[in-house]
């Protein structure tokens, strides 16, 4: 138990610290690297909770795909940081005001949570893990039965994202040399090959 608690505080502490560093660090590449660290530690927290599948997905999808994409974008884009900082200072007062209002709202909400007498019994209880079933299988059973409607709908959302990306960015450019394998294979010797007799010292006219 002590080991578990230690591991939890280790992961949680590093997650929060790297979260702070993401915002605080000057170099955006370092920000992304800290973000990756935060993802890894969140994955550790998921493992502690017994959600191995989510932990693995977090590493594979977020670290493997999203964060690397971020890294590429940050490295490729030429962002003027001085200008960004300027905007930050200018909008600081209004941002702080909105933040304060949101904080007060949250406090009110959390305060009410304690007051509402039925909150405890209303809180949904986590579904017990069926015996002898792995994490992934349990999620799959839910996803493909009870939530199949949402699963399919989410698939269509992704399809639209793909169509949208193609519609908005794909250009048929003129004068681009493409490899046409069928043409290459279908080439006849006569079309492309000519044998010339070259006289010694005469050259090719």
């Amino acid at each position: 138990m002590v080991v578990l608690a230690l591991a939890f505080y280790l992961f949680a502490g590093i997650t929060i610290a790297s979260g702070v560093m993401v915002v605080a660090t000057r170099n955006p590449v370092h920000s992304v690297l800290f973000l990756i660290l935060a993802f890894f530690n969140s994955a550790g927290l998921f493992v502690l909770m017994g959600a191995e599948f989510l932990a693995m997905i977090l590493v594979v999808v977020y670290v493997g795909a999203v964060a690397v994409l971020f890294l590429f974008v940050v490295m490729m884009l030429d962002i003027n940081y001085a200008e960004l900082k300027e905007g930050f200072i200018r909008y600081l007062p209004i941002g702080a005001l909105i933040g304060a209002i949101l904080l007060i709202e949250l406090l009110v909400v959390i305060g009410a949570w304690a007051i509402v007498p039925t909150a405890e019994e209303r809180a949904p209880t986590p579904t017990a893990m069926p015996e002898g079933v792995t994490n992934t299988e349990a999620l799959g059973r839910l996803l493909y039965t009870e939530y199949v409607y949402l699963f399919q709908a989410a698939g269509i959302v992704l399809l639209i994202a793909m169509i949208g990306a193609i519609v908005l960015t794909l250009r048929q450019r003129e004068g681009v040399r493409r490899q046409r394998i069928a043409d290459q294979i279908g080439r006849q010797r006569e079309e492309v090959l000519a044998i010339r007799k070259v006289e010694p010292g005469g050259g090719v006219s």
Partner: peptide, 23 residues
Amino acid sequence: LISLYVGLELMSLSLYVVAAFRR
């Protein structure tokens, strides 16, 4: 609420694309 959100995103995402259709 979940099916509400998924439906809303499905609609909105298509609308964003057609709004920018003359890219």
